[in-house]
């Protein structure tokens, strides 16, 4: 390479860097760290919000997505993944970030409805025609029924499954903590495989042909049907189930450092607008705005706060080491 050639190349490179610099100034990026089932939801939301924001402020915004198990994502944020906002599966995981001082205490009151712009619940996915006649939670403990659920120790979604079953047993006539424990233990006797994450369990059920019923997020069950064939599976909604409220919040420390607070807040508020709610409904989440139409069946739903006294307590009683879940598998003495 001649010196002149080198000089022109360098100049061109410098120019490219300079223009890239100005491009970045007008194009703000946000990082939304979320859990597994929301990929499709947020890729729609992000497009819609970007055009909304362009119209409102004239700035372009790029929202980057990161997805994974809820607990793992929370850990990444704690360890320095620079998320402007998190949209996780359970408040427990967001609390864990708050404990480390990255989010101000009281975050759950910042946005309406416990900072959960959409809700979901746990339903059953069964094989077409429902050959095992699974209608409700008590059908899951019958002998010969094989149930697929991920491991509550490693999957946020599976914790909702577990608590939903527990709550159902508790609400039966004469239901006590003891009968609920017994019920859930019987249910897990019917579980042949414990995948580590929700999507892994879905794949075990769908691809490997294991099990008669999959316990899944409502939105996941419908997504699986849409993606993998309505001719093979159907959704069964039980008589009652748990109200899952996946919370969203701004990571204060990151947003303040990067100067993206205003945008991050606008982004989360957008989830509560009619447009945001419609997109949530489209992806089979339950919008919190009752005016937005939804295709989902009405179910009696109970909250984790009422039935279990909140996530901190539920986690400690059921999923911590030695909790009720571990007791199911503890070796008999």
């Amino acid at each position: 390479m001649t010196i002149r050639k080198l000089a022109t190349t360098l100049a061109a490179a410098a120019l490219a860097v300079a223009t890239a610099g100005t491009a970045i100034a007008a194009n703000v990026t946000l990082l939304n760290v979320s859990y597994d089932p929301t990929r499709e939801l947020y890729s729609d939301i992000n497009k819609s919000f970007a055009s909304y924001w362009k119209g409102k402020s004239g700035d372009s915004v790029t929202i980057r997505q990161s997805h994974g198990g809820s607990g793992k994502q929370a850990r990444a944020v704690i360890d320095g993944l620079e998320a402007d906002v998190v949209t996780l599966a359970l408040a427990y995981d967001v609390d864990a970030i708050a404990v480390k001082g990255l989010i101000k205490p009281g975050w759950q009151r910042e946005l309406p409805h416990n900072s959960a712009p959409y809700t979901s619940t746990i339903v059953f996915l069964v094989r077409k025609g429902n050959p095992k006649k699974i209608r409700n939670w008590d059908d899951l403990v019958k002998p010969g029924v094989s149930v697929i659920t991920p491991n509550p120790k490693t999957s946020g979604g599976a914790r909702w499954n577990y608590l939903a079953a527990w709550g159902f047993a508790l609400h039966q006539k004469g239901g006590t903590e003891a009968t609920a424990k017994e019920f859930v233990a019987r249910l897990f006797k019917n579980v042949p495989v414990l995948d580590s994450g929700a999507r892994g369990a879905t794949n075990t059920f769908v691809q490997r042909g294991m099990g008669d019923v999959l316990l899944a997020w409502e939105n996941e069950a419908f997504l699986a049907i849409n993606e993998l064939g309505p001719d093979k599976f159907e959704v069964v909604t039980p008589s009652e189930s748990i109200l899952a409220e996946p919370p969203v919040t701004v990571i204060d420390r990151v947003a303040d450092k990067r100067g993206t607070r205003k945008l991050a807040e606008e982004y989360l508020k957008y989830l509560y607008t009619d447009e945001g709610q419609k997109i949530a409904a489209k992806h089979y989440y339950r919008p919190i705005n009752p005016k937005i139409p939804t295709r989902l069946a009405k179910v009696k739903l109970y909250t984790i706060d009422k039935a279990f006294g909140g996530w901190q307590k539920a986690q400690k009683t059921h999923f911590a080491d030695g909790g009720t879940f571990d007791q199911i598998y503890a070796p008999r003495k």
Partner: peptide
């Protein structure tokens, strides 16, 4: 961020993990 060098790296805006 919770590690040995995390706070120092963040102050100087150096990203290693993630």
């Amino acid at each position: 961020l919770q590690g040995w060098l995390g706070p120092w790296l963040q102050e100087h805006d150096i990203k290693i993990v993630f």
